[in-house]
Amino acid sequence: MMNDMEFLTALTRVGFSGELQAIDLSANVGELSDEKINEYVMKAAAIARSETDKIYRNFSASPFAHGAVTLFFKNGILSRLSLSAAPLPEKAVWRLFSTGAEIIFTENGDFAEMKKAELDAPTEKIYKKDFK
């Protein structure tokens, strides 16, 4: 079965969901280190299939580490990675917006939810185990 990143990059391939335009991550992590921030930047770059053109980091340390990285990739995809280390369970939710669909996926989950860019499109569940 695919891992999370393989699943996300497969879901955003052009033939499946159109051309990816925007990536939004909201994640609460146990420890918000530079290493963790870079890990998510690398994940976003993998999903965007592009190198970073512009990047802006804005973090504060108190009362817990929190902030965001905004990225503009060379292929025009825009990304916002919101990261916090609040005293709550770890959870990372990706929202991906393409010309053909919008996709929501929670890391370590079994499925993604997708709505196609059509009027009154239903929400479809796409399971990792079934996806090729």
Partner: peptide
Amino acid sequence: QTVNMLFEGGITATLLMHGFAN
């Protein structure tokens, strides 16, 4: 478009806007 902001007191805020939702 994104806006990545720092407010007084170390408060961080971000806005993401795009025209690609269902």
